[in-house]
């Protein structure tokens, strides 16, 4: 058990003038994301793109599924890691327009670990695998794009055709999709 202060122990007088940005140490969020990035173990269908190598908090993930409805497509996700990582999950948006039951036109992604089931023990790698899984097994039970979910449940062939149509670029229903074949 330690006894902290010997009496009369005077601390060094501090200077009270604000001096911003003079820290010697990276923040805890920075340390954690650095570790996550170094330990990224991407499946062969995934790739990352860092626009600024010094900024590990902002990057893109590119998924090119090699099986399932979405094979031959190329889908870009943006990741923004905040100062409260890993207490809070990174903000992830799908930048590619995609006909998918769990992704809407604004790029919102319905993946439990991105919101309600996020835990600090999870890593960037967990999210990558979660996103990849969404393309292998789109989940009509938790839809963001209700029409797509309905087609998937009632007519898998039509769903597959719609996915193809959207990936080639064109209208599905009333919505226009940009081409995203790799």
């Amino acid at each position: 058990m330690i006894k902290l202060f010997s009496l009369k122990q005077q601390k060094k007088d501090g200077e009270s003038s604000p001096k911003a940005n003079n820290q010697k140490k990276a923040s805890a969020a920075q340390l954690r994301i650095t570790k996550d990035i170094n330990e990224l173990n991407l499946p062969k269908t995934c790739n990352t793109e860092f626009p600024d190598p010094d900024d590990l908090l902002t990057f893109k993930l590119i998924i090119c599924p090699d099986e399932g409805f979405y094979r031959t497509g190329r889908f870009v996700f943006s990741f923004k890691v905040g100062p409260n990582y890993p207490h809070e999950p990174p903000k992830v948006k799908c930048e590619t327009q995609v006909y998918h039951p769990n992704i809407d036109q604004q790029g919102n992604v319905c993946l439990n670990i991105l919101r309600e089931d996020w835990k600090p023990v999870l890593t960037i790698n967990s999210i990558v695998y979660g996103l990849q899984y969404l393309f292998l097994e789109p989940n009509p039970e938790d839809p963001l794009n209700k029409e797509a979910a309905e087609v998937l449940t009632t007519n898998r062939r039509l769903f597959e055709q719609n996915v193809q149509k959207a990936m080639r670029g064109g209208y599905v229903g009333g919505t226009y999709f940009d081409r995203c074949l790799k």
Binding site: A20, A26, I37, N38, N47, T48, D54, L56
Partner: peptide
């Protein structure tokens, strides 16, 4: 090994070999 440091209040990636886009630029 991946190496980063902190200079003048900013993160700096010295070298990370495992991420292609970072490796190329460091």
């Amino acid at each position: 090994p991946g190496l980063t440091t902190y200079i003048n209040g900013k993160n700096k990636t010295l070298y990370i070999s495992t991420i292609k886009s970072i490796e190329e630029r460091t």
